[in-house]
């Protein structure tokens, strides 16, 4: 039997008349990596702020280990480590000072806080900068320190809100590798990290849009909801857009067709699409389409999202 560690029950939040989160319920199970996906403005950060006790919901409640999390419940909050989307550091403190300070405010003794801080600085490749004021660090280093601040008190649940946001490719890889390494160490992790990572590491994924939970399941199950098989993305030279004609042309091949939102690419999903590529292209040509560049890929969570909302995750 699974043990639910974090639970949201009917969370709602409005800002100036705008419904940011609407009756959202979900459970995070002990030991799982939980992916929390949605486009910008979907309500992810608002939900996370409510889940971590930083924001009081207008409706609903949050339970941590089955206990209702109250705003002033510091002991409950201390079980959660939060890495916010923005870099939130004390610029006039050194890396080591602020990690030890934060650790001690979470209840660690000075020695443990310092030991944890030094370990994290080492793991995040900041050991040489431990006595540097954080305001003097590069953007990538500050982002890594931001992650360390979420982990210094060794929390039971770690919430990572877009930890790669605003990073250059080199730093992005470093942060991604570290975040991935956490999956083996932390019991629970809630992340709004990118879809690739969610697909690879998350045990379950929730997708929200317009403040509402659209789906919550394992990545495999979600992809199955969209359809089995590979996806062919076929550019059409004559720009003809006739979904019915395309579906009719490919019906004998048990393929599912869909145009991308720009209307320039036909997306065909079918079992063994690669093996039957010549047949598919031939059927389309016979129906008056002029196939051009072809891209073959596996089903992704992006497809799930497009199927659910008709638009991409990152617009």
């Amino acid at each position: 039997m699974t043990n639910i560690i974090l639970s949201a029950e009917g969370l709602s939040k409005r800002f100036n008349g705008l419904q940011a989160v609407k009756n959202l319920s979900l459970n995070v199970e002990e030991g799982e990596v939980f992916g929390f996906l949605g486009p910008n403005g979907a309500g992810k950060t608002t939900t996370i702020r409510m889940l971590t006790g930083l924001l009081r919901p207008d409706g609903g409640r949050v339970l941590l280990n089955g206990q209702v999390m109250q705003g002033g419940d510091a002991a409950a909050r201390a079980q959660v480590g939060v890495c916010p989307q923005e870099v939130v550091i004390w610029k006039k403190l050194t890396c080591l000072e602020q990690l030890v300070f934060t650790g001690q405010l979470y209840g660690l003794d000075g020695q443990t806080a310092r030991r944890n801080a030094l370990r994290l600085l080492d793991e995040l490749d900041l050991a040489e900068k431990r006595n540097s004021l954080s305001g003097t660090l590069s953007g990538g280093m500050q982002r890594r320190l931001n992650i360390a601040l979420a982990l210094v008190h060794d929390p039971r649940i770690v919430v990572l809100d877009e930890p790669e946001a605003g990073l250059d490719p080199q730093n992005r890889v470093g942060v991604r590798e570290y975040v991935q390494s956490l999956a083996h160490r932390k019991t629970d992790r809630l992340t709004t990290h990118n879809m690739d990572e969610a697909e690879r590491v998350a045990d379950r994924v929730a997708i929200i849009d317009h403040g509402e939970l659209l789906v919550l399941d394992t990545p495999e199950q979600l992809k199955r909801q969209v359809g089995e098989g590979d996806v062919l993305e076929i550019g059409l030279k004559n720009g003809r857009r006739d979904e019915e004609a395309a579906q009719a042309a490919l019906s004998s091949l048990a393929a599912n067709v869909q145009w991308d939102e720009a209307g320039a690419v036909l997306r065909v999903r079918a079992l063994d699409a690669v093996g039957r590529l010549a047949q598919i292209l031939g059927a389309l040509e016979a129906a008056g389409f002029q196939p051009g560049a072809v891209n073959i890929r596996a089903n992704t969570l992006e497809d799930v999202f497009i199927q659910l909302t008709g638009r991409r995750l990152r617009e």
């Binding site: 930083l54 510091a74 959660v80 916010p84 923005e86 939130v88 405010l105």
Partner: peptide, 14 residues
């Protein structure tokens, strides 16, 4: 402004 108040609010600091 720097968001560090939220970070403090997450800790046990009252």
């Amino acid at each position: 402004r720097e968001g560090t108040l939220n970070r403090l609010a997450l800790t046990r600091l009252s």
